[in-house]
Computed example of a mutant assay.
Amino acid sequence: MKVPKNKFRFILIFCIVGILFLQFSSAEKEDFVSYSVNPKMETIALYWKNEKHSNFGSIENLNKWLSKNKKKLLFATNGGMYKKDQSPQGLFIQNGITKSPIDTSTAGGNFYLKPNGIFYITSRKEAFISKTDEFINTKNVDFATQSGPMLVIDGKIHPAFNKNSTNLNIRNGVGVLPNNDIIFAMSKKEISFYEFAEYFKSKGCKNALYLDGFVSRTYCPKENWKQTDGNFGVIIGITKNKN
């Protein structure tokens, strides 16, 4: 049976597109470890100190503590920059209580590359990322962490980022997806701010926030990625109750 030329061309184009899509998906999977979560369906919290007022520091310490409290850790990543004593740099709200005040000052470094921003979760289990100067601390903010710079702002990549930048590093960040789910991501290799922002934009995030750089760690058993070391300030954890 002879295949018509037009039909053959269509099949060929379809196959090429399919191969390119698979290659892109594979490359993306190799370059990033990510975790998407519906904040209304899974328990998300920000951790800093235990009941003895000692820093958790590492994901391993947090995991052990959660296990003792009959919770299973599904995902964790460092949740923002911190000072030399591991105290949060900028705003940190935990269970509705402000543990560290907002920082609106001007200085050098990634944190102060304006606009920087705040990732927060409300008592209605809704997640938001806002520019620091637009954030309003209301009574319904359960958790919040400040960091910088913003990666994506109202659907656009931060104007200070250079597509050809040679400033490469491991990076982790957070974005809000079009369906209002949260996506956490960390690069598996050193990349530029522009490349990292581009990743969140490709996911449809209108706003995304940089969390930290070369010290970043991610615990994501679902993706067979388990980094549990580190000595952090705030840690973001997603948990479920043990049976």
Results as ranks from 00 to 15, higher is better:
residue 117 G to N: 11
residue 168 L to V: 15
residue 167 N to D: 11
residue 158 H to F: 07
residue 169 N to L: 14
residue 118 I to F: 00
residue 157 I to S: 10
residue 133 D to K: 09
residue 108 G to N: 14
residue 128 F to C: 07
residue 115 P to V: 13
residue 161 F to C: 10
residue 116 N to D: 14
residue 114 K to V: 13
residue 162 N to G: 07
residue 165 S to I: 14
residue 147 S to P: 04
residue 143 F to Y: 05
residue 141 V to L: 03
residue 136 I to G: 00
residue 150 M to W: 01
residue 156 K to R: 10
residue 157 I to K: 03
residue 111 F to S: 05
residue 112 Y to H: 13
residue 123 S to E: 12
residue 139 K to T: 15
residue 125 K to F: 01
residue 151 L to N: 05
residue 163 K to Q: 15
residue 113 L to F: 01
residue 116 N to S: 14
residue 149 P to M: 10
residue 111 F to G: 13
residue 116 N to Y: 01
residue 166 T to D: 11
residue 115 P to N: 08
residue 160 A to D: 09
residue 131 K to Q: 14
residue 156 K to F: 05
residue 159 P to F: 02
residue 155 G to V: 08
residue 144 A to I: 14
residue 132 T to N: 03
residue 114 K to A: 14
residue 121 I to A: 10
residue 119 F to V: 13
residue 117 G to H: 02
residue 149 P to Y: 11
residue 122 T to M: 08
residue 155 G to W: 02
residue 152 V to L: 01
residue 146 Q to Y: 07
residue 163 K to E: 15
residue 121 I to L: 14
residue 108 G to F: 03
residue 167 N to R: 12
residue 121 I to Q: 12
residue 138 T to E: 15
residue 140 N to E: 12
residue 116 N to R: 06
residue 140 N to K: 10
residue 148 G to S: 05
residue 167 N to S: 15
residue 107 A to D: 10
residue 154 D to K: 11
residue 162 N to A: 10
residue 124 R to I: 01
residue 115 P to I: 12
residue 166 T to C: 06
residue 125 K to A: 08
residue 112 Y to G: 06
residue 114 K to Y: 06
residue 120 Y to H: 10
residue 153 I to H: 02
residue 166 T to I: 15
residue 164 N to H: 14
residue 126 E to M: 06
residue 128 F to D: 04
residue 148 G to C: 09
residue 142 D to E: 13
residue 110 N to Q: 08
residue 119 F to R: 05
residue 129 I to C: 04
residue 116 N to K: 03
residue 116 N to G: 06
residue 119 F to N: 12
residue 123 S to W: 02
residue 129 I to P: 00
residue 158 H to Q: 07
residue 150 M to P: 03
residue 136 I to H: 04
residue 126 E to P: 02
residue 110 N to T: 14
residue 107 A to T: 10
residue 144 A to C: 11
residue 166 T to R: 14
residue 155 G to H: 06
residue 159 P to Q: 09
residue 129 I to Y: 01
residue 146 Q to I: 11
residue 162 N to E: 15
residue 132 T to G: 04
residue 163 K to P: 00
residue 164 N to G: 08
residue 143 F to N: 07
residue 155 G to I: 05
residue 149 P to W: 09
residue 126 E to Q: 10
residue 123 S to V: 08
residue 150 M to C: 11
residue 142 D to N: 13
residue 159 P to Y: 04
residue 168 L to R: 15
residue 141 V to S: 06
residue 165 S to W: 03
residue 142 D to W: 02
residue 108 G to H: 05
residue 126 E to T: 13
residue 165 S to T: 12
residue 118 I to M: 01
residue 140 N to F: 00
residue 145 T to R: 12
residue 151 L to C: 03
residue 119 F to S: 05
residue 114 K to I: 11
residue 147 S to L: 05
residue 167 N to W: 01
residue 162 N to W: 03
residue 136 I to A: 02
residue 128 F to V: 04
residue 155 G to K: 09
residue 113 L to T: 15
residue 115 P to S: 11
residue 136 I to T: 04
residue 113 L to P: 03
residue 109 G to T: 12
residue 147 S to H: 03
residue 162 N to P: 00
residue 116 N to W: 04
residue 151 L to G: 04
residue 140 N to C: 01
residue 169 N to I: 13
residue 140 N to M: 05
residue 126 E to L: 03
residue 111 F to M: 09
residue 141 V to K: 09
residue 121 I to H: 02
residue 118 I to N: 00
residue 123 S to F: 01
